[in-house]
């Protein structure tokens, strides 16, 4: 029996459900499925410019696993561009890490439970905060 797949932690899910090429005449549109963790891998390395080790730690997986996910993400996007396929975002083996708030001053990540009313960083009391994926529960 293979080892179980660890869930990949994802800070924020993609804000789209897909991308479509335009200017192509296709009777039927084929698509590639970009998993949430692949989107997250692309985002962490190429947008947030983290190295693979840091990104892997954030997602709670090993560096080699992260490299594999990242590679598969790049290949899927390349295939979609070259073969003019649609990109669809699908859930994959993801675990959405909810309700995190990031302090832009000291880079601590924290939650604010309902019974607390002040919105300031618990470490540096800065109010330069960023909601990562806040959801009302």
């Amino acid at each position: 029996m293979p080892r179980r797949r660890r869930l990949r932690k994802i800070v924020a899910p993609p804000n789209f459900t897909g991308y479509k090429p335009y200017g192509v005449n296709h009777e039927k549109q084929e698509s590639v499925e970009l998993l949430y963790e692949e989107y997250e891998a692309i985002k962490l390395t190429d947008y947030d410019l983290l190295n693979h080790k840091e990104a892997a730690d954030l997602m709670g997986i090993s560096r080699p696993t992260f490299a594999r996910i990242y590679e598969s993400a790049r290949r899927k996007i390349a295939a979609a561009l070259v073969e003019t396929k649609e990109i669809k975002a699908v859930y994959g083996n993801a675990l959405l890490d909810k309700n995190w708030i990031l302090c832009n001053n000291c880079h601590a990540r924290f939650t604010i439970p309902k019974k607390m009313h002040h919105n300031a960083c618990p470490l540096c009391t800065s109010d330069n905060l960023e909601l990562l994926n806040y959801q009302k529960t």
Binding site: D57, K98, N99, W100, H107, A108, R109, F110, T111, I112, P113, K114, K115, M116, P122, L123, T137
Partner: peptide, 13 residues
């Protein structure tokens, strides 16, 4: 911890 309304703070330094 979320359920019991305990604030969690993650410091990665």
């Amino acid at each position: 911890l979320d359920k019991f309304e305990i604030q969690v703070v993650v410091v990665r330094e």
